[in-house]
């Protein structure tokens, strides 16, 4: 019988180079709005870093491919001493991050017939601001980890879409009931 040995720790790690390049560009020129949402946490005692990148473009990639792309982006964008400190790199789409409770705050457009802006204009502004359209392209989801970042986004939406001040509502998910 043929004998084949497989080493699971050495599976090929193919990184999506186009996404890695795009992410590297984001790392070099950080923007206030839009995805990807990049969070870096430094552990003070070891100086190690945990990176979390929330981005709908991860959708077609496996977790391992996402990690590889994140690491490749940091290798491109950062000095090697910074890259070497990255101990954990996690990639999530916006819906996945919502499911994990990482983005509990959201903005919804509460458009009335008397408002000066339309639902479509609001949806377009939200997408420009970085809303996710993975779940439903017609109903973009604009999600945040904190109330402050949601409020800052609301101000940008108002600036981007004049006379929309009263339309935008910041809300928060209710805690999900789970079985223990």
């Amino acid at each position: 019988m043929p004998r084949t040995k497989h080493n699971l720790e050495e599976l090929p790690r193919s990184a999506d180079t186009s996404l890695a390049d795009e992410l590297a560009a984001e790392l070099k020129h950080s923007r206030l709005a839009a995805q990807p949402i990049i969070d870096e946490y430094t552990f003070p005692k070891t100086n190690a870093i945990r990176v979390q990148v929330i981005w709908d473009k991860w959708d077609a990639l496996t977790d391992t491919e996402r990690t590889a792309a994140i690491l490749m982006a940091y290798r491109t964008a950062e000095e090697s001493d910074y890259f070497d400190r990255i101990a954990l790199a996690i990639g999530l789409t916006v819906p996945e991050a919502c499911e994990l409770g990482l983005l509990p705050y959201y903005i919804i457009p509460a458009v009335r017939k008397t408002d000066a802006v339309t639902q479509e204009q609001c949806a377009a502004a939200m997408i420009q601001e970085g809303a996710s359209t993975l779940l439903d392209p017609k109903r973009p989801q604009l999600r945040f980890s904190s109330e402050e970042s949601a409020e800052a986004s609301r101000q940008r939406l108002i600036a981007a879409l004049p006379k929309s001040d009263d339309v935008w509502v910041v809300a928060k998910d209710l805690a999900k009931a789970r079985h223990e």
Binding site: F43, P44, K45, T46, A48, R50, A87, L88
Partner: peptide, 12 residues
């Protein structure tokens, strides 16, 4: 993973 990463001497 975070605990091991954050603790001197415990990193993988």
């Amino acid at each position: 993973v975070s605990y091991r990463t954050a603790t001197p001497g415990l990193a993988y």
